[in-house]
């Protein structure tokens, strides 16, 4: 098959290497402009894991903006070491400042230790503690994450299938339903510059640019519901190209109404750590208390 724009061989999405790279980068920066994700003087923190999404995100943002990377080392044996190695090498080569925070140092225990000693679900603990550490970084104006079109289409569909429509209001290229005035103090804007880019194209871009990619998978990655949605969506997309984009576009046209309808009320502060919280304690401090009890540890978490 020939490229749609020239006589070279097409390699992905009907385009040759050169035209694909151009189209990919144009869509990336267009999304930032269209949704006003970044202001000129913004300091950007990239939540990086070393996976292909965060590497491509870091690469394209650092070409035009000032960025720093923050990675959380949860302490997942046989997995995180590998993706962090890729990330460290990438940041060194591209002169990007990288900070790595470990759960062990911040909370006293690695994820592996917590899971071994408690019956808590790995992804629940991991998600809460990771979000907490990201939110704590106040040296930036926005936090960019590597969420792509596939992630978003899956999340939308999952919330619909589980009848959790109110959670839809939290999705979108710019997240947070917290009113602006309060948000400034409590919540740093999250942005998803790869919002409209399919996962397959991100991998193609990483391969063409010869970024190292690690093919390990988190041993705890077992959200069976997300996996079935992912698989089903890919089957439909293969037969009906454009399905994922349709889901996301459809959702975006409804998002203003959803935000209006499910406006989050007043956001308080955690009485212990001053992070945003709906209850007296934020979810991370609650989690820490639960872990402490379960681990019967003398050492405070």
């Amino acid at each position: 098959m020939k490229c749609k724009k020239c006589k070279q061989k097409a390699v992905v999405s009907g385009l040759c290497k050169d035209h694909f790279v151009k189209s990919f980068e144009r869509r990336f920066y267009d999304c930032i402009a269209k949704y006003k994700l970044i202001k000129k003087k913004d300091k950007i923190l990239v939540a990086a894991s070393g996976g292909k999404d965060s590497i491509v995100l870091l690469y394209l943002l650092s070409k035009k903006y000032k960025v720093k990377a923050l990675a959380i080392d949860e302490g997942i044996h046989g997995y995180r070491e590998q993706t962090l190695k890729v990330l460290k090498e990438f940041c060194e080569k591209n002169e990007i400042e990288l900070t790595i925070k470990t759960l062990k140092k911040e909370f006293g225990y690695s994820l592996d230790q917590i899971i071994k000693k408690t019956k808590l679900r790995a992804c629940t603990v991991c998600g809460i503690l990771r979000r907490y550490l990201l939110n704590k970084d106040r040296s930036c104006d926005v936090i960019a994450t590597g969420h792509n079109l596939d992630d978003e289409a899956q999340s939308i569909l999952m919330n619909v299938l589980k009848n959790q429509i109110e959670l839809l209001a939290r999705l979108g290229p710019k997240t947070g339903v917290i009113p602006k005035k309060i948000a400034k103090k409590h919540f740093i804007q999250r942005i998803k510059p790869m919002y409209f880019i399919p996962e397959r194209e991100i991998m193609a871009y990483a391969v063409i640019k010869k970024f190292g990619v690690s093919f390990t998978e988190c041993p705890y990655a077992y959200d069976s519901f997300r996996s079935s949605v992912l698989e089903g969506l890919n089957l439909i997309e293969n037969k009906n190209p454009g399905t994922k984009m349709n889901i996301v576009k459809n959702f975006l046209s409804e998002l203003p109404n959803l935000k209006q309808k499910y406006k989050q009320g007043r956001v308080g502060q955690c009485s212990r750590c001053r992070e945003p919280a709906n209850k007296q304690l934020c979810s991370a401090c609650q989690m820490a208390d639960r872990m402490k009890k379960l681990l019967k540890a003398r050492k405070p978490l």
Binding site: S49, G51, K52, D53, I76, Y79, E199, R200, I202, M203, A204, V207, V213, F215, E217, C218, Y220, A221, L230
Partner: peptide, 8 residues
């Protein structure tokens, strides 16, 4: 054959 689906 490279899987493009990431886990974690």
């Amino acid at each position: 054959i490279l899987s493009v689906v990431s886990g974690g």
